[in-house]
Design a protein around this nucleic acid. Sequence first.
DNA 1: AAGATACGTCAATATGGCTGTCCCATCCTC
DNA 2: GAGGATGGGACAGCCATATTGACGTATCTT
Lengths: 169, 169
Amino acid sequence: MAVPSSVSVTPTASPLFLRENEVRRGVELLFFGYTRLTRAIDEGLAEHGLGRAHHRALYFIARQPDLPISALLKILAITKQSLGRVLTDLGDRGLVETRTGNIDRRQKLLRLTPEGVQFEAQLFDALRSSLASAYAAAGQESVTGFWRVLEGLIPAEDKAMVIALQKDI
Amino acid sequence: MAVPSSVSVTPTASPLFLRENEVRRGVELLFFGYTRLTRAIDEGLAEHGLGRAHHRALYFIARQPDLPISALLKILAITKQSLGRVLTDLGDRGLVETRTGNIDRRQKLLRLTPEGVQFEAQLFDALRSSLASAYAAAGQESVTGFWRVLEGLIPAEDKAMVIALQKDI
DNA sequence: AAGATACGTCAATATGGCTGTCCCATCCTC
DNA sequence: GAGGATGGGACAGCCATATTGACGTATCTT
């Protein structure tokens, strides 16, 4: 390891620093795996003149119908302005609609139109076929490990949000 | 594993289609895990006025010194123009240098300068601490599964490239 | 000598983020 | 009921990162 001593000056070897190979492998597999998975849907998106940002919104709206905009902002961690543009596009194409919240009338609750449901399902099919075949090739035990490691990458303050997503399946 | 015996159409319900929950979970964990990991280095990059695109180049040059530009183009799967700008920025900051190939004098071989090595190591420390703690929390068996699933997401035609990266650690 | 390859470069464009500012409607608290 | 906090929308401008297409030069291969 040709790391200049000025950077990581650990006099004693910490276990966290004995893993360069494993860490680099994880970084690389995450990079390639993630980018290849997202590419699986580009074609479907392009047919509607949409990009990946639109898909992310579409996906989470599909996942939690009647999601308030503020919740989507937290999930995506982008600014209101950036999301506004995306939602305008999705609305213009008749894929997403909003209605006023019952409990809090300031809120707009997002949900997919029937066309939106169909389109999201079509995109999801591409994700499913990629991920399901990776799952099948790796085996169920590996899938569990895959989830565990990824969960460990999510900071504590975001974890509740992610788990909430997966509760009401 | 329950992979249909060929690519053929299975009239009965394929196991691949009985996994919506698992697939959604994977999509979400990949999204959050990947984005959170990449955020870990944004601060360090911003100090040099660089972005994530610069880090990706820096990372793979660190990984394979004397990498020809054409190889980096394949890894990153972006256009020559996009990469050109990134490499210009890295060169201007004295982080990356090129030299003419010995075997093929048309090639320019990329490598980090000493400053580049130090900077990459600093960024890598952030990645390492995130990933290593996720690894530690999940356990070694999970890490193996994590790798296996991600490998399954990489299309066959790219797999050789990724494996080549990990051979000469 | 001809063609392919590796790299560089110019110009124009798209996407998806950002900041800052201001506004309106609604809710909550005192 | 007044005042402040919150949810959402909108305008203007900017930045980072990617794209396509076309063209040029050096070098390698045949």
